[in-house]
């Protein structure tokens, strides 16, 4: 067959062979596999949401309570004690806290997702990517549950949305790519090197202060500002913030860095996962 199939036909044959594999294979094959098993993804997300709340009295209220408590603490410290002098500080915190919690919980959770699901990974034939991607989507669902809190606060503070509100879905998409890439990478790396989990714990605390959650990007100037905006989270979070704070400056450079960073981590993170998959499966 091979010699007769040239050009487009050859491509189609390759595509059909790749997409029919149950697991593994090239990058394209893997995306097709995850897409084909999207019902499993939906199942895993609902399972995790149900499981988390099935044995608690407050149930879904916990999803709202966690960011609310964090916002309250930072409001007390940075709004009341060490006055940063930012107006509508609770809303200011909330706009970036919600995407931050999505980022933090998905990235920290990804380090244990593969070996935590070892029995499933070694006995059910699914694309291994399903597990970290499912985690990222679960955390995204929780993020969507908390998002209305921002809108309610905006109403209370009489801050009408700006035209940047239209860019928020774009910021969410960028973050989805970024978190998926990092999650895939860490899930494989941390299965082979358990120290990653600890190192990440410290790193996340540092990263929190290097990301504009409790202060505005505009407070930084010169070289520090130039270094600061190399963090792809800056552009993403500032879009969320600009949607309710018209004075937030989102430059083209910041958005470009976020786009490049997200695409880079998505492709490179998945690449690392593919590279380490064989050894990762032996460790389970």
């Amino acid at each position: 067959m091979g010699h007769r199939a040239g050009g487009l036909n050859g491509l189609r044959e390759w595509w059909q062979r790749e997409t029919r594999r149950p697991t593994g294979g090239s990058f394209a094959a893997r995306i097709a596999q995850v897409h084909r098993r999207r019902d499993v993804l939906r199942m895993l997300v609902t399972r995790d949401l149900k499981r988390k709340y099935s044995n608690s009295y407050l149930g879904y209220a916990w999803t709202l309570l966690d960011p609310a408590l964090m916002i309250a603490v930072y409001w007390l410290v940075w709004g009341q004690v060490a006055r940063l002098g930012i107006h509508d500080y609770v809303l200011f915190l909330a706009t970036a806290m919600m995407p931050w919690i999505w980022f933090r919980s998905a990235v920290s959770g990804s380090t244990s997702i593969i070996y935590g699901s070892a029995r499933m990974v070694t006995s059910i034939s699914l694309p291994r990517e399903i597990y970290p991607i499912g985690l990222v989507l679960t955390k995204m669902a929780e993020f969507f549950i908390t998002l209305p809190m921002v809108w309610v606060l905006a109403l209370l503070y009489h801050n009408p949305p700006t035209k940047w509100l239209w860019a928020v879905p774009f910021a969410i998409l960028l973050q989805l790519m970024l978190v998926t890439g990092i999650g895939l990478m860490l899930s494989a790396v941390a299965t082979l090197f358990r120290d990653v989990e600890r190192a990440l714990h410290s790193f996340m605390r540092v990263l929190f202060y290097l990301t504009p959650v409790i202060y505005p990007t505009g407070r930084l100037h010169g070289k520090i500002h130039a270094l600061f905006v190399l963090n792809p989270l800056v552009g993403i979070f500032d879009i969320h913030r600009a949607a309710f704070f018209p004075e937030t400056v989102v430059t083209g450079q910041m958005v470009l860095i976020s786009v490049i960073g997200s695409v880079f981590f998505f492709v490179a993170g998945w690449g690392v996962f593919i590279k380490l998959e064989r050894q990762m499966l032996k460790e389970l």
Binding site: R51, R119, T122, S123, I124
Partner: peptide
């Protein structure tokens, strides 16, 4: 049919 009850969630 390898590890049978892999995938079960006790609290569901």
């Amino acid at each position: 049919m390898l590890g049978l009850s892999a995938g079960f969630v006790g609290t569901l």
